[in-house]
């Protein structure tokens, strides 16, 4: 299935958002959004992905 992760087109096998994080090797403190909507960590397992989804995976970063 083709989706977009952090702006990059990716072909993935994951069916859910939590599987996607495992497949792409993301661990630790990240927050997720799909198609511009926040998806809480507790809902990632039940959040099914669809072809063309835009997934954002964000982490703590320096800021002013």
């Amino acid at each position: 299935m083709k989706i977009v992760v952090n702006g990059e087109p990716r072909a993935v096998t994951a069916a859910t958002l939590s599987q996607l994080l495992v497949e792409l090797g993301f661990s630790g403190r990240v927050a997720t959004a799909v198609n511009e909507d926040f998806v809480a960590a507790s809902l990632r397992e039940q959040h099914r992905l669809n072809a063309g989804d835009r997934v954002e995976i964000l982490a703590p970063m320096q800021g002013g």
């Binding site: 952090n6 630790g28 403190r29 990240v30 995976i57 964000l58 982490a59 703590p60 970063m61 800021g63």
Partner: peptide
């Protein structure tokens, strides 16, 4: 301390920063 969120890279730079904070 003010902080932000940005796209996480493959190297997990966000996790290192989180430790510092």
């Amino acid at each position: 301390a003010t902080v932000s969120l940005r796209r996480e890279g493959a190297g997990g730079t966000g996790q290192t920063f989180w430790q510092v904070i």
